[in-house]
Amino acid sequence: MGLLPDRSLRDPADRRPAHAAPQAGDEEGGPLTYPGGDPIDQCVHLGREVIGAGLAIGSGGNLSARSPGAHECVVTAAGTWLDRLDRTSFVRVRIADGVAPQGATPSSEVGLHLSVYRARPDVNAVVHLHPQTAVLLDALGVAVRLITTDHAFYLRRVAVTPWHAPGTPGVGEAVAEAVADGTNCVLLPFHGCAVLGETVEMAHRRAANLEEAARLTYQALLLTGGLGPRELPACPPDFLAHRDPGSLI
Results as ranks from 00 to 15, higher is better:
L155R: 01
L155K: 06
I57F: 04
R7V: 08
L187I: 14
T217E: 00
A134C: 06
A125F: 04
W81H: 12
S108Y: 09
C193R: 08
P162E: 15
L216F: 09
A100Q: 02
E27H: 08
A56N: 02
I57C: 02
P101S: 05
H204V: 01
P189S: 01
R15Q: 07
L223F: 07
T183M: 02
T149P: 00
D97M: 05
P169C: 01
W81C: 09
E173T: 09
P17W: 03
A53H: 09
P166Q: 07
L227F: 05
H45A: 12
E49A: 14
R156E: 15
L85D: 02
A24F: 09
V175D: 04
H151D: 12
A194I: 01
E198C: 06
T80Y: 12
G170I: 06
L4C: 02
V93W: 01
L129Y: 09
P12Y: 03
D97Q: 05
R87H: 09
P17S: 05
T224I: 01
V75E: 12
G58W: 05
Q132L: 11
D6H: 08
P12I: 01
G52Q: 08
S247N: 15
V75N: 12
A18R: 10
P162F: 02
S8G: 08
H204I: 01
G36M: 06
P121Q: 14
G69P: 08
V110A: 15
I95W: 10
L129V: 11
G37F: 09
G182P: 02
R48Y: 01
M202T: 14
T80L: 14
A77T: 04
L223R: 07
A96S: 12
R156H: 13
A152W: 00
R230L: 15
G197Y: 07
D238F: 12
Q42I: 07
P233D: 13
G2Y: 01
E49P: 03
R205Y: 13
A134L: 06
L137C: 05
E177T: 10
H164S: 15
G141R: 00
V135H: 06
V160N: 00
V158A: 03
H128I: 09
R145P: 01
D86L: 01
A234Q: 15
V135S: 07
I249S: 11
V179I: 04
T168M: 03
A134D: 00
T149C: 09
R92T: 15
A234L: 05
A65L: 11
A180M: 11
M1I: 04
T105K: 15
G79R: 03
D38P: 09
S115K: 02
A119N: 08
L3K: 04
N184H: 10
R15A: 08
A178C: 07
H130R: 10
V186E: 11
H151L: 00
A208E: 12
D150L: 13
N62A: 12
S67M: 12
H151S: 05
L4E: 08
V158F: 02
E211I: 03
S115C: 10
P35H: 09
L32E: 14
L137Q: 00
D86G: 14
